[in-house]
Simulated scan of single mutants.
Amino acid sequence: VRTILQTVDKYYSSIEHAFTYTLSNGAIEGMNNKIKNIKRSGYGYRNFYNLRARILISYQLTAPTHPPRALTFEEEDAV
Rank of each mutant, 00 (worst) to 15 (best):
A78V: 06
S14F: 07
K36P: 03
A27S: 14
S24A: 01
E29M: 00
T3I: 05
Y45F: 08
G42I: 01
A18D: 11
R54T: 04
Y59T: 12
N32A: 03
I38L: 12
P68A: 00
P67C: 04
K10Y: 08
K36G: 06
K36T: 08
A27W: 08
I15Y: 00
T65F: 10
H17V: 07
I57R: 02
K36F: 11
Y59A: 12
L51C: 00
E16T: 08
E74R: 07
A63H: 04
G30W: 08
D9G: 10
Y45N: 00
G42A: 12
T62M: 12
N25D: 15
Y12T: 08
G30Q: 04
A18F: 07
S41T: 05
L61N: 11
T20Y: 13
T3V: 04
H17S: 04
S41K: 09
H66R: 08
L61R: 13
E76I: 03
E16H: 01
Y21V: 09
G44F: 02
L5I: 02
I55Q: 05
V79K: 10
E74I: 01
V79T: 10
S14H: 09
E74C: 07
A18S: 13
D9R: 15
N50L: 06
R40M: 10
K34V: 14
F48K: 06
I4R: 11
S58F: 11
T65W: 13
D9F: 13
K34I: 13
T22A: 05
I55H: 03
Y43H: 01
Y59F: 15
R54N: 06
T65A: 12
